[in-house]
Design a protein around this nucleic acid. Structure first.
Lengths: 197, 197
DNA sequence: TCTGAATTGAGAGTAACTCTCAGAATTTAG
DNA sequence: CTAAATTCTGAGAGTTACTCTCAATTCAGA
């Protein structure tokens, strides 16, 4: 009917190649470190030419930094009950999206975070993605409360929650998902209380 | 008496070279764009070899991204009256440090911001610096209220204010300093009110 | 099966760095 | 004031990420 059928040999091969490159990349990064691993090595491991590597991933960084806060998240946020405040809706969105992860996926995600946090180039690019997330969240919050996405208070809210997410970012060894969610909860509660110290 | 005297010919020359490189770099970036300007061009303009360029600036980015939130800011923050809350102290610090700028310095700073915002690599690195600022602010706030810098609420506060600063970052043409300060004021007030939308 | 489109590998080229080394300039000691 | 020790500089070679082009191969649809 739609595009449900097997998408043809060519498409299948492409997906396969892409996955292979990414897996080998992450594996090598974990073992040898990000900067210590060269694109040549990844390409060789995935059995493609360096040129092909760059056809699938515009930069080395992109093997690690697949989009966060992407359409899936947006849909989840929009799907939250209308009576929830933006903060509550975001909290629910994060809970839902993390709950959807399997044990294995969470482990992979933790490893990814470790990599990102320790490689300055990766960390910087991720922080820029979070910065871009401010606009996105402002848009979503604006929809929810019927204000403009350029509304100053809406943007301030978006900035604050993104900042809180940054601050809650795991800095030491792999955390448990539960603990992470609890932290987010506490942080958002603190935020809504006006951040008393 | 201390190191007030002219620091010797060699030191003077070094400072001069460094300044020359930076000025030419910023000038060329403004005219041709950041990525379009090569280190060779900068080195040639500043009349040094490319090798020397890298002796003064470890990366091309560092000609633009001199430290923000550096010791000066820290001193200013610590110098605020003890009765101010961390948020109030930060507000005062920002006001003070901006007020210290001359008209020309502000113009330069605006231009710098424009460059950073439009070059993804620069923007990413700056966001990473802001991320690092979370730790710094957490430390300063902790001192002020007599809590631990690892205290969760302290970190949440630091994350939130950094996020607010990000959100208030000028996205369009050069703003006036006054407007910028007003924005910060409003944002912090909104934050302390619990971010009602 | 044949034709057109997409994918691939190979090779050359650019730009940001890094490292090493020899020569020049500056500081310091005598 | 001069000689030795220190520091700085330019030059050159090398690495790596990434770009571009071209010819050969592979797949899709008629």
């Amino acid at each position: 009917m739609t595009t449900e059928k097997t998408p043809g040999l060519r498409e299948r091969k492409k997906a396969q190649t892409r996955a292979a490159i990414q897996e080998h990349a992450l594996r090598l990064f974990s073992r040898q470190g990000y900067t210590e691993t060269t694109v040549q090595q990844i390409a060789a491991a995935a059995d493609v030419s360096p040129a092909t590597f760059f056809r699938y991933f515009p930069t080395k960084e992109d093997t690690v930094l697949f989009d966060r806060m992407d359409p899936v998240m947006m849909d989840l946020f929009r799907a939250q009950p209308a009576e929830l405040s933006p903060t509550e809706a975001l909290r629910a969105t994060l809970t839902d999206s993390l709950a959807a992860l399997t044990e294995d996926e969470w482990r992979l995600e933790s490893e990814r975070q470790r990599l990102v946090l320790n490689a300055p180039e990766l960390r910087a690019k991720m922080m820029d993605q979070l910065y871009a997330g401010i606009d996105l969240l402002a848009m979503l919050a604006a929809e929810r409360v019927g204000r403009s996405p350029d509304d100053f208070e809406v943007r301030t809210w978006a900035g604050a929650v993104v900042g809180v997410v940054m601050a809650a970012w795991p800095r030491t060894g792999p955390n448990r998902m539960q603990d992470y969610l609890k932290q987010i909860d506490r942080a958002f509660a603190h935020l809504q209380a006006g951040l008393p110290l």
